[in-house]
Design a protein around this nucleic acid. Sequence first.
DNA 1: CTGTTAGCGCCTTCAG
DNA 2: CTGAAGGCGCTAACAG
Lengths: 418, 418
Amino acid sequence: MSSPPLAAARRATITDVAREAGTGKTSISRYLNGEMSVLSPELRARIEAAIERLDYQPNQMARGLKRGRNRLIGMLLADLTNPYTVEVLQGVEAACHALGLMPLICHAANEVEMERRYLQLLTTYRVEGVIVNALGVREETLRPVGGGGIPAVLVDRSVDGLVADMVGLDNRAAAELGTRHLLENGFDDIWFVVQPFEQVSSRQLREAAFREVMSREGHESRISGKGEGGTNLGKGEGSNGGARGHTLVLNLAEPAAVERALAELDRAIDAAGDPGGAMARAMATGSAARNTLDDATSNSADDATGNAAADAARKASANATGKARRIALFAANAPVALCLALHLKARYGADWQARVALLSIDDPEWAELTGVTTIRQPTYEIGYRAVEFLHERIEGIQTTARDCLLPGELIVRASTSR
Amino acid sequence: MSSPPLAAARRATITDVAREAGTGKTSISRYLNGEMSVLSPELRARIEAAIERLDYQPNQMARGLKRGRNRLIGMLLADLTNPYTVEVLQGVEAACHALGLMPLICHAANEVEMERRYLQLLTTYRVEGVIVNALGVREETLRPVGGGGIPAVLVDRSVDGLVADMVGLDNRAAAELGTRHLLENGFDDIWFVVQPFEQVSSRQLREAAFREVMSREGHESRISGKGEGGTNLGKGEGSNGGARGHTLVLNLAEPAAVERALAELDRAIDAAGDPGGAMARAMATGSAARNTLDDATSNSADDATGNAAADAARKASANATGKARRIALFAANAPVALCLALHLKARYGADWQARVALLSIDDPEWAELTGVTTIRQPTYEIGYRAVEFLHERIEGIQTTARDCLLPGELIVRASTSR
DNA sequence: CTGTTAGCGCCTTCAG
DNA sequence: CTGAAGGCGCTAACAG
């Protein structure tokens, strides 16, 4: 009986409520803002009733316009496809919830142009602050943010021109943790695989730390996969510390580059030999590689079932100089790890882990399923802290830019454990 | 030289620009709204300059307040952890982008209370519409939406009290596609595993379709896992069509319930026998089950390496009545599939797929890696269409509530292919 | 305790 | 072509 008409009736305004309650707008406003002590119980009751009757809900836009703060913060995400991002988001949401903030989530989906537009949008909506997980950002694009503009805090990576709080993984420590683990478990060749890192501070730090640890421990290391050929492999066999380090750049945005880099990797793996006899086993059980990714290195004319596998096996046995070298891949993050795993599975069959070990920063849901060793980031806390920082800035704190580096946790799984 | 002061200066308003340009606010407003034909080139140039000089950006809140529309739409998500959700989101973003809408993303994180609060928040921000991927919603909680309230379109599932457009997977067809595939590939026992489906229409439809196809094909089927015991298994062996269907409810929100359900599944699997000799192989290679999930059914005192596996193998051989039955699991969505896969891997070792086949609706990134067969939803399109529908509603279209059912695509992988 | 009076930043008649 | 005036829904001094 009291249900409103079906046509989308205009929402009630504060004026309507005032009229309905037989009072002025001010009292309604006071009620809305919880200034109960200043309202006679009688008036208060009338207001309550009126609000109920009209199903009134205050217009946040108008409130914001008036008081100059709208409790909105922007959350700019580089890539929601990355589980890391979703996890951080959970922390952000929890913190916002606790602090009475409302996050506007903007997903740049790996496009710089989107990033620019969203940033622009956020400022025109007058959010009180932004927390930014930026992709390659030139200072230019986020001029409105940070320093002289609206408060900002960076997540996972810093941006060159911009001074602002930042919270993320302790990349140096994490990379060292992983490298040490691989070294201690006796791997002979360690490939650090990472996306192009010129633009992204966290990748830079991880790569640099990897290289530093390797050399500090007396192992040699070099970079490849950046230019065209990547043929600077196979030289300088005379390593001193035993293990060899190698950085491989994997540009996931460019299929051709990915293919080239993976081909280089394959050559190295084939050259290393087949310690566990994985190839033979894989081919015997019939669960061998179906070569789904175009693989430039395999052009043999074997039967369709396992040509890549057969090819690899041949090379391996031909190459066997005696004892095989144990090889491990250290992925700089989950997307890289996934790409590697998919490729390896396609090339070496379901049993690929017997041949190559995989360790990854980030701990995606499939890691446990696959038995891949990982370094889990404290994602939830990263998100939570970011909002706390931002909140302090919004409240006017004037500290100099802070960095919050949280430690990662090594989760050892079958892939690297003996 | 022209960089603004470091202190966060108050943003310029339309009044500032008018003064700076030596004109009235009206002309600025006209410029902002692209009414160029009504401005003398000279004035227009002055305005342009003033805007540039002041780095002016119109306040969207104020605009919205005035004209009554703010180009904001709400996007209420049940669970961002589910890859399905992220994929749909991509479509939504693309469509919003194309239509000049800005989605406010709200993540309920599987909590009904959050859902209620966000819905409330969205309406107080006067979004022009909402697209809702609801979790268990009582009509009550979204009273402000649909029918008499703000335009809404449902994604993936419908809500009982609410009449609104809805777009999602053609669940009947998808479930039939999967079931048929399993039947045709000669599986003897098919378990349809699904989260509690009373509240969620899509789950209901999938389950019902599964059961219907089974019986239409002349196979029997029954439900279990809903109550306490779930001991209604093992009766009525006399099936007519050969294959047996079974629905298992897996309440992921309750660990105890999960454990019980999985235990029932284990019993069935053990009873079915070991067609491929998977157990023996797994134990031999040393990659056998490390029992990470607490498994209530395994309490043998074997060595720590493979107690569950050994236990299972013993039961299996003891149970072998001659020819083993081939068993397949049909997961109603990705979260269920992941839970099953993790459990099976823990119990039967890395080679678990030789023993049980897994087919899942949804196509998460780990499916390809694991070789699990899936039915991929047209997620991107679902999101895109949802926004299109909503946009039409916002523009005032008056059609009766529409349903858009998109087909799923079967992706056959090793798990079920012979 | 309560109502009146100004705006917040912008858009929209309506006269110049 | 251009500008002045009024108001969107709400809050914040000021008086009563």
